[in-house]
Amino acid sequence: MTKFEAFVKRSFSISFIIAISLVNIGCSSTPEQSKRMPAAQINDPLESINRPLWVFTWEYADKYVTRPVTNAYVAIMPDFLRAGLLNMAQNLNEPSSMINNLLQGKFKAAGNDAGRFVLNSTVGLLGFYDPASDFDMMRSQEEFGEVLATYGVGDGAYLMIPVLGPSSIREEVGDFIDHSYFPIGDFAFWPGIFRRAIIGLEARADFGEREQIIDNSVDSYQFVKTSYYQNMLYRVYDGNPPILVDEKAEEELDEYLDLLEEIDEQD
């Protein structure tokens, strides 16, 4: 069996197992039905552990390690090289994004992911360049955690991962699956670490002025946690999260409008 045949067989096996699991999880719910469900409440049963980990992450690890290393990386590396390395790192996520879109029935998005991977891996020199964007094939990476959310799986407990930052049980499970896909699943240890470092450094470099917002917040831990869940909701709903309405306030408004209508009729 060739390596290509082994890859195809493994990919179909993983996809089949995931699909069966999602059918069992979703029961009779479809992705669209699940997406109409209201957002789950923030679940933080581990706050007594998460808070000290946040202090360590922000006040020590970021201040004395992550931030200085990121600043040095930005100062030393030429912009074109930074952009190229990040493109290469993100290009490796396209196959997993394709499968995750297929599992949600987003066939057009899956085709876009496949086209991006082929074009950027060939004409784009292993993803260093991004010619796919010139053809309006924009990057929109879908994670397996979003697949689980689509099928009604809740976030689970909120987690503060030391150094890495906020996460949740669902996102960690999703990341584990995403990293098992080709080609990331075939990476040796150090190439995988290098790829994650590139993505992490660029993410930290883009953080920018939000540092001051966190520092000036009344409760930085609560602010970061709330921001994390808002971002996850935004991603799960592809940039169009539902507008959650206070049912009690809505009932009071209806009663008030009915009262105005009665007054108008009396006049």
Score class of each variant (00 low, 15 high):
52 P>C: 04
87 N>S: 05
13 S>N: 10
52 P>N: 07
33 Q>P: 03
57 T>W: 10
80 F>I: 13
92 L>F: 02
95 P>N: 02
14 I>A: 08
42 I>R: 07
69 V>L: 10
28 S>F: 09
60 Y>E: 00
28 S>H: 08
61 A>L: 15
69 V>Y: 05
10 R>S: 03
38 P>E: 15
21 S>R: 01
34 S>R: 13
68 P>T: 03
27 C>G: 13
79 D>N: 06
23 V>E: 00
20 I>H: 06
24 N>T: 07
65 V>Y: 06
90 Q>Y: 12
10 R>G: 00
48 S>K: 10
67 R>G: 04
59 E>S: 13
42 I>F: 01
18 I>H: 05
77 M>T: 11
44 D>F: 01
58 W>T: 06
64 Y>T: 01
30 T>D: 05
80 F>E: 04
13 S>E: 03
88 M>F: 11
65 V>G: 09
51 R>H: 04
23 V>A: 11
69 V>M: 09
60 Y>T: 09
29 S>W: 03
46 L>H: 12
40 A>G: 11
60 Y>S: 00
37 M>K: 15
22 L>T: 02
39 A>D: 06
29 S>H: 08
11 S>R: 06
65 V>K: 04
28 S>C: 10
63 K>Y: 15
55 V>H: 15
58 W>G: 00
20 I>C: 12
35 K>A: 06
93 N>L: 08
46 L>N: 13
74 V>S: 00
17 I>M: 09
75 A>M: 08
11 S>W: 01
36 R>G: 13
65 V>M: 15
82 R>Q: 14
53 L>P: 06
32 E>A: 14
73 Y>K: 02
30 T>E: 09
76 I>D: 01
86 L>K: 09
70 T>M: 07
80 F>N: 06
71 N>A: 12
67 R>E: 06
39 A>V: 12
14 I>Q: 12
42 I>Q: 06
66 T>K: 11
93 N>F: 03
20 I>F: 11
57 T>H: 07
45 P>S: 03
40 A>Q: 07
52 P>V: 15
23 V>F: 14
67 R>V: 11
93 N>C: 01
91 N>E: 13
89 A>F: 10
33 Q>A: 10
57 T>M: 04
37 M>E: 12
11 S>H: 06
13 S>D: 07
40 A>E: 15
26 G>V: 01
26 G>N: 02
26 G>T: 02
96 S>L: 09
38 P>S: 04
16 F>W: 12
51 R>N: 09
20 I>M: 14
68 P>L: 06
80 F>W: 15
14 I>K: 06
55 V>Q: 14
69 V>H: 03
72 A>C: 08
70 T>L: 05
71 N>T: 05
48 S>D: 03
91 N>D: 15
62 D>E: 14
50 N>G: 05
53 L>F: 11
